[in-house]
């Protein structure tokens, strides 16, 4: 079977709020000097999900696809070093401002050309804009069923059994393939690249796709995006820190003070 994992290269989402800055006029995040881009963590877990399917003995070819700037190649290399077999890097200077909907439209087109795939995996959302739109969009545009927020997958014949997270519990869902599954953080830690796999990765093929090669009219997509949706602001909410630090010589003294302060504020 063929599995495709959609990955996005993003600025490190773990950077502290104290050094996080945005350019309000350009409505963009200001990158930190010298800090390399990372693979969106949910997407890394999607790669892990694909590799676990293979670990259980399913014969499969695992491909990754990434749409973004040329620098996305590092994320692709990391995916290949984790164990993916090949990759498609989608780049187009005419689509640098693509939003989630446009990204889904471009990816769907490229996937149509590169496929067919039995299973398309993606992170539940990209850890930069946190929108969770692209996976759903690919499924709708390719007329495939989708299961979101998965934390475990098992392929049985032509179906995939997915355990997914709900607000008040979990559910087990069986879906016919081909289908799209988005992966949530509950899946667990992705594996690290091994030296052996990293050496092999250097020889794994990375195909480059453009809007043109995928029959995408980038100026038309751009115009349609502008017509539908526009980011009109980006800011960091201001917060005033006024923490009342409770200190004391002993734990008893600290606890006594804490209780009296909470009681004074009618919190207990």
């Amino acid at each position: 079977m063929r599995i495709l994992v959609c990955i996005k290269s993003i600025q490190n989402p773990e950077i502290a709020a104290s050094v996080f800055r945005v350019d309000e006029a350009r409505k963009e995040v200001i990158p930190l000097d010298g800090l390399p881009l990372v693979t969106s963590p949910f997407d890394e877990q999607a790669i892990e999900a694909a590799l676990r399917i293979r670990d259980r003995g399913q014969e499969c070819r695992i491909s990754v696809i990434s749409f973004g700037p040329a620098s996305s190649k590092a994320a692709i290399k990391r995916a290949l070093s984790m164990g993916a077999d090949d990759a498609i890097q989608v780049m187009d200077t005419g689509l640098e401002q693509a939003d989630s909907a446009t990204t889904a439209r471009v990816l769907a087109k490229v996937i149509q050309h590169a496929g067919p795939f039995d299973l398309i995996l993606a992170g539940r959302q990209a850890a930069d804009w946190d929108a969770g739109i692209v996976g759903c969009g690919i499924a709708e545009l390719l007329h495939m069923p989708i299961v979101t927020f998965a934390y475990a997958l098992e392929v049985t014949g032509a179906r995939v059994v997915v355990e997914r997270v709900l607000d008040d519990g979990t559910e087990t869902v069986e879906a016919p393939m081909p289908c799209v599954v988005t992966i949530s953080n509950e899946l667990g830690e992705p594996r690290k690249a091994t030296l052996k796999e990293t050496m092999r990765a250097a020889k794994k093929p990375i195909e480059v796709a453009t809007a043109e090669s995928a029959d995408v009219d980038s100026s038309k997509l751009r115009a349609e995006q502008e017509h539908m949706r526009a980011r009109v602001g980006l800011y960091v909410p201001r917060k005033e820190s006024k923490c009342d630090l409770i200190s004391g010589a002993t734990a008893e003294e600290i606890a006594r003070q804490a209780i009296s302060k909470l009681a004074a504020s009618k919190l207990i």
Binding site: P13, V29, W129, M228, R229, A230, R231, L234, V236
Partner: peptide, 14 residues
């Protein structure tokens, strides 16, 4: 967005 560090304002025109 950005793990709750920022807020974006989007205009939806459909």
């Amino acid at each position: 967005c950005f793990g709750h560090k920022a807020r974006e304002v989007i205009g939806l025109r459909t």
